[in-house]
Write a protein that binds this DNA or RNA. Structure first.
Lengths: 254, 254
DNA sequence: CGAAGTTTTGATCAAATTCAAGAGTAGTGG
DNA sequence: CCACTACTCTTGAATTTGATCAAAACTTCG
């Protein structure tokens, strides 16, 4: 179910304003580009499609284009010692092929069927230089990606597998809400092995972590791609689990 | 030994160009700001000093200023369930207090005595809006930080403690070289507990990892803050250690 | 319906956590 | 300058958790 946030009239970048003050219950995300900017980009962009599982960028390949996702989900990953590490999951409104050094640092692959805009790097740089207010948009987007990368690191710093998984689900739900999609249940487009690669765990460990959360009635699953969170407090609950299990259970209905 | 890269005549941002093509053996880092930009920023900046260990920003506190390090090292961290997680180590030429959402997402603390420029956020935004080419500099800087955060995540995805430590040392050395400092030995300004918090390990595990590398003659230590890498290939060696120990040792002199 | 791929589950093993005690380093003041 | 204290760091022993290897259940798809 790719979202149709954009009416297909050009590239679209979605992000939350990093400066917006105010105690938002939920940070608001908007379309960053003005019609004019979209038009400019549209002129240099071409629409490309990828089948599920199809490779898009090769790690270390010459970075000659930037992509902007219209629909579908993309996996950015790196391969270290024959092991794939998922760097991030990219959704419609996201940019990739960016933040390189002449060559792609991350490889990318379609997690679902993907439609995207492809823009030659040279042309994009040219527009940036001509100094549209576009660079501010890019800054905002980068801030968002940076925050997400740091949150990913925070997740990976957790020692318990169940904690990592809970944080991951929490993160996915949050992103889903921010994207404006219904969030009664969490949609996980990627398969277990990608989740494992994102969590820095083995397939087996992810499986067990799911079973742990399930058996404690913290989550329920409709199928492998749809999870519902039953206990809203698990996240904080799991974060200090090491205390929880030694002392009294705070709110864990076991 | 704070480096005196800058002659103290205003804020300075150091970063590597993410677009610079070419198969650099080592990516070059330069001072991004023009004299004009530095002058503009200097007008709104004030010099601040912090003692070792002193708290600079509070997590969640109102983000009203941006800092630019002149000398010393700053630790950016978050506290989750009473546990500190180090997000990054910041060096002269780095920016912090950035990439927030009205409030600081990371707390910051001086790892060594620190001298920095403090710039009111409002003024910085104003300059950005007045559209100096400064925003491109910010983009470059953000790309760098993003790359580093992703590398951190990659490190944290490693399962073996010794591997994480080796990657950390490699990273520190790389940064040191890029900063233009002599790199015969690696200088680690932070103490073990901060390293542990950065690596997502316990203090004990970090200690053991050090001892492992030492006993295998992969590194040597002059004191707790100075490490020398003896075997240049360990990094790649450790990255696929799980293979190495099952098969033949490739180049490990044990 | 069967076959390939993916995911769960099980048993064993290795590695990191935990808890706790013992070295090593500062840092302070006599 | 040395001794004393506070702190950080290392080391040790028992426990827990995840990795590993392998087999069984489930999906998907031709």
């Amino acid at each position: 179910m790719p979202t149709d946030t954009t009416r297909m009239n050009g590239p679209a970048i979605h992000a939350v304003d990093p400066w917006a003050r105010g105690n938002d219950p939920l940070p608001a995300r908007h379309q960053l580009l003005s019609d004019d900017e979209r038009a400019q980009l549209a002129k240099i962009a071409s629409v490309v499609r990828f089948r599920k599982g199809e490779q898009i960028c090769h790690e270390g390949g010459a970075a000659d284009a930037v992509f902007n996702i219209t629909s579908g989900v993309v996996i950015a990953y790196r391969t270290l010692a024959k092991t794939e590490h998922v760097v991030s999951f990219l959704y419609p409104g996201d940019l990739f092929g960016l933040s390189e050094e002449g060559r792609y640092t991350n490889a990318t692959r379609a997690a679902t069927p993907v439609v995207a805009y492809k823009m030659p790097l040279a042309a994009v740089r040219h527009i940036l230089d001509r100094n549209t207010s576009l660079d501010v948009d890019v800054i905002i987007k980068l801030c968002g990606e940076l925050r997400e990368a740091q949150r990913h690191a925070l997740l990976l710093a957790q020692k318990r597998a169940a904690t990592r998984l809970a944080m991951f689900l929490d993160l996915q739900e949050r992103l889903q809400i921010v994207r404006g999609e219904p969030a009664v249940e969490i949609y996980l487009p990627m398969d277990r092995s990608s989740i494992a690669a994102y969590l820095g765990l083995t397939l087996a460990a992810v499986g067990r972590a799911f079973r742990t959360l399930l058996s404690r009635n913290i989550i329920s699953t409709r199928d492998r791609h749809h999870v519902k969170i039953l206990d809203r407090d698990i996240f904080s609950g799991l974060a200090d689990m090491h205390l929880v299990q030694n002392t009294k259970k705070t709110h864990g209905r076991l």
